[in-house]
Amino acid sequence: MSSTFLKGIDVSHFQGTIDWVTVARQVQFAYAKASEGNSVTDPCFSANYAAMRAAGIARGAYHFLHADVDGAAQAGHFLDVLGEPQAGDLPPMLDVETACGMQCAAIDTCALAWLAQVRKTLSCTPIIYSSGGFWNSNLAGCAALTDFPLWIAEYTSAAAPVLPQGVSSYAIWQHSQTGKLDGIAGAVDLDLFNGSAQALAQLARPAR
Rank of each mutant, 00 (worst) to 15 (best):
Q117I: 02
R25A: 12
D108I: 01
G186V: 04
T98E: 14
G141H: 10
G141Q: 03
A140S: 12
A204D: 08
K33T: 11
T109A: 13
I18V: 12
I172S: 09
A171G: 04
N138E: 08
S123H: 13
D147E: 12
A51D: 09
L192C: 02
P43L: 05
S39A: 10
A58C: 10
A72S: 15
V81S: 13
Q174A: 03
Q86C: 01
V118G: 06
G76W: 01
I57H: 04
P164K: 12
A171F: 10
G37W: 03
T17Y: 01
A106N: 05
I57D: 07
T4E: 15
T178P: 01
V81T: 13
L90S: 07
W20A: 04
D182W: 05
A201C: 12
L190I: 07
L6F: 04
H66G: 01
F134K: 03
G16T: 08
Y155Q: 12
S169D: 13
V23C: 11
L6P: 02
L139F: 01
G88R: 11
S46R: 15
S168Y: 03
Q198P: 00
T125Q: 11
L122G: 12
A158D: 11
V96K: 02
I127N: 05
A99F: 00
W114I: 14
E97L: 11
G132W: 02
S157A: 09
V27I: 15
A87K: 00
A105D: 10
Y31Q: 08
A199R: 09
A99C: 01
L65T: 00
W114N: 08
Y129S: 02
A67D: 00
S169K: 09
A159E: 06
Q26K: 09
T121E: 09
Y170T: 07
A61C: 04
A58M: 15
L94D: 02
